[in-house]
Amino acid sequence: MDNHKRNLKILGSPYYLWSAFFIIIPLAMVFYYGLTDRSGAFTLANIASIIQTEHIKGLFLALELSFISTVICILLAYPLAMILSARKVSSKSFIVLIFILPMWMNFLLRTMAWQTLLEKTGVINSVLSFLGLPVLKIINTPSAIILGMVYNFLPFMVLPLYNCISKIDENVINAARDLGANSLKVFTRIILPLSIPGIISGITMVFIPALTTFVISKLLGGSKILLIGNIIEEEFTQASNWNLGSGLSIVLMIFIIVSMVITEIFDKGGESNFL
């Protein structure tokens, strides 16, 4: 039997080799390039270059926009998840229809379509001016990027929240009501604490892709607004300064790890509160 077990372990070696070569070594190379200069000598200059005006501006703008988008996503997704979990019967196929189906239309095209909708003479403004309302001027502004982020990442907030809320035992809610809790109290004392794991995984699934995007900002923000993702992308595809690009990527990874640690702490805090 032991022999058999060892054979089973060896079965995994294609994957172990694969992940060593295509996950660990590439990541190590980002660190190597990020910590050396063009001649290969050790330096911290690439990482320190984050304090250059343009870079730090890109980082702060990305943090700001992805934070706002995440908050908007929570505010939009929470009522949605509650409504969906209340209508239990047909909701599963409904959710697939409303959230998964759009993903089959290419995400670049969908984001592009917002250009058509938001433009100065676009669809939304035509309708607004027809109704005699003031026109929107949000294309090529940070607001358009926020809209694009919310649009693209909202499903990633709704799905974990829905999973969480629909699993809450109705008897617990009924018990609270029987004991005299009003709707608000039921929400703050029962539904909200029990849905924290959903909020947490929603936050990581929205915040990190939003923080690191370069596509949405390029398509909806015009060419003038640079997020940290755009700066890194340009270092690799246009400036060909891999060392600088890798250095900035290391900074980005540090922010990802910090945001994960923070959400982890909140997660633990939420759990212990509940218990």
Binding site: P26, L27, M29, V30, G229, I232, E233, L252, M253
Partner: peptide, 17 residues
């Protein structure tokens, strides 16, 4: 790692490899 890391970092790391 590939699921949690930023896609852009996964992309450039593979490109460097």
């Amino acid at each position: 790692i590939p699921m949690l890391n930023a896609e852009i970092v996964t992309g450039i790391s593979l490109m460097l490899l």
